[in-house]
Amino acid sequence: MLFKGTTTRPRGFVDRDVEGVGGRMNAGTSLDYTFYHAVLPAPRAVATIEMLADISVNSILDETELELEKKVVLEEMRLSEDSPQRHLARQFYGVVFGSHPYSRPILGTADIIQTLTRDTLLAFYRRHYVPESFALVVVGPVNPTETLRAAERTLGRLPRSGFQRLSGSAPASLTPKRVDDPRPGAFAYLGMGWLGPRLDHADTPAVDLLVSILGQSRSSRLPQSLRERLALVNSVGSDYTAYEAGGVIMVTAQLEAPNLARAEAEILRVVQRLREQGVTDAELRRAITQAEAEHAFRSETAEGRARLLGHAETVWRLAEELAYIDRVRSVTSEQVRLAARRYLDPERYGRLAFVPPAR
């Protein structure tokens, strides 16, 4: 909605002022924050700061445009549900996070979107889109003095609202839960998971490496055991997402429905062996190398670097982001084993399976 016109910029300003000079502009929302990003030629940096400041406080939120945008969001919801992997991940948060706000879908529900009014949207906009909530990140071959002056002249002059952003409460301890959800399709999809440490926790680097060793490459333990050795799954992997108030560790697999019980048991056996025996030096070195490569890839462009720094400045700390890879490099094999014992309890986990109907 913020791209649909402001009090001084008519509808279509993105096409004219951004795409018309070879740039692009978009937005996204996570469970912790919303971000707006633009990639344009460096000489357009000041004009882009002015544009971002304008849409941040002067968007008109036209009612006709709102009704059109609601249809777009409802279609996004439908498409997400069409993808078993994406839908599993989203539904799984409800299993792991329980009543915590992280269990709620980012897009909301169809009922909420359908009944959303301009008055409700405008009230949210006025409450949350205030200078105390903004973080501006500019990366590229720009003039620092001119850039700072532009920020001070625009965002810096906005009247303060007194709004204070509250830190999110930590999720309660996980209540073991098992859910089987019938879903048409050729394959079953299995999700198993645990609560993990929050973004700024001292254990976060060790858990990142733990999850990499578990299932983020073909040589990781879960793919080697479940796919290559036992042929129980078509694919299997692990993931760890750290948020401001908590984190989630997930193992997901695509497989034939008759293999669900055996696959779940084997995943738990792999986890238990890791808890008891730890990881090898070779596994740790590979995981650290993979973390270094992924971080370098995410930050190799101006856009990627801006996103990393903006994320840190908004819900983390900039100094922690800049030092993170060094912290990863300092993790020991014993710290990874202790992280497995602390977070991967084979007796307490959430489980969600999409199961095709019997043939």
Score class of each variant (00 low, 15 high):
residue 2 L to I: 01
residue 3 F to C: 09
residue 10 P to I: 13
residue 12 G to V: 03
residue 13 F to V: 00
residue 15 D to Q: 10
residue 17 D to R: 11
residue 20 G to T: 09
residue 27 A to P: 10
residue 33 Y to E: 08
residue 41 P to W: 13
residue 51 M to K: 00
residue 54 D to M: 13
residue 70 K to A: 09
residue 74 L to S: 04
residue 77 M to C: 01
residue 78 R to L: 05
residue 81 E to M: 13
residue 81 E to R: 15
residue 85 Q to T: 02
residue 90 R to S: 13
residue 91 Q to D: 14
residue 92 F to N: 00
residue 94 G to N: 01
residue 97 F to V: 03
residue 99 S to K: 09
residue 108 G to A: 14
residue 111 D to I: 07
residue 113 I to M: 08
residue 114 Q to Y: 04
residue 114 Q to P: 06
residue 119 D to Y: 15
residue 126 R to E: 00
residue 139 V to G: 10
residue 142 V to C: 00
residue 144 P to C: 04
residue 145 T to K: 12
residue 147 T to F: 04
residue 151 A to P: 03
residue 152 E to Y: 07
residue 153 R to H: 12
residue 164 Q to T: 05
residue 166 L to R: 15
residue 171 P to H: 02
residue 174 L to M: 06
residue 176 P to M: 06
residue 178 R to F: 06
residue 181 D to Q: 14
residue 182 P to N: 14
residue 186 A to T: 00
residue 191 G to R: 00
residue 195 L to H: 01
residue 196 G to I: 00
residue 197 P to M: 11
residue 197 P to K: 06
residue 197 P to L: 07
residue 198 R to T: 07
residue 201 H to I: 13
residue 202 A to F: 15
residue 204 T to W: 00
residue 209 L to Y: 04
residue 209 L to T: 05
residue 210 L to I: 15
residue 212 S to N: 14
residue 214 L to E: 08
residue 220 S to I: 11
residue 229 R to M: 05
residue 231 A to V: 10
residue 236 V to M: 12
residue 237 G to C: 11
residue 240 Y to Q: 09
residue 248 V to G: 00
residue 249 I to Q: 05
residue 252 T to H: 03
residue 254 Q to C: 02
residue 259 N to K: 09
residue 261 A to L: 11
residue 262 R to S: 03
residue 265 A to Q: 10
residue 270 V to N: 14
residue 274 L to A: 04
residue 275 R to T: 10
residue 283 E to C: 14
residue 286 R to M: 00
residue 289 T to C: 08
residue 289 T to H: 11
residue 289 T to Y: 11
residue 290 Q to M: 07
residue 293 A to M: 07
residue 293 A to I: 08
residue 294 E to S: 05
residue 296 A to C: 13
residue 297 F to K: 12
residue 299 S to G: 14
residue 301 T to G: 06
residue 305 R to C: 15
residue 309 L to G: 05
residue 316 W to L: 10
residue 317 R to D: 13
residue 321 E to W: 06
residue 337 R to I: 14
residue 337 R to H: 14
residue 338 L to I: 05
residue 347 E to M: 02
residue 348 R to H: 10
residue 354 F to C: 03
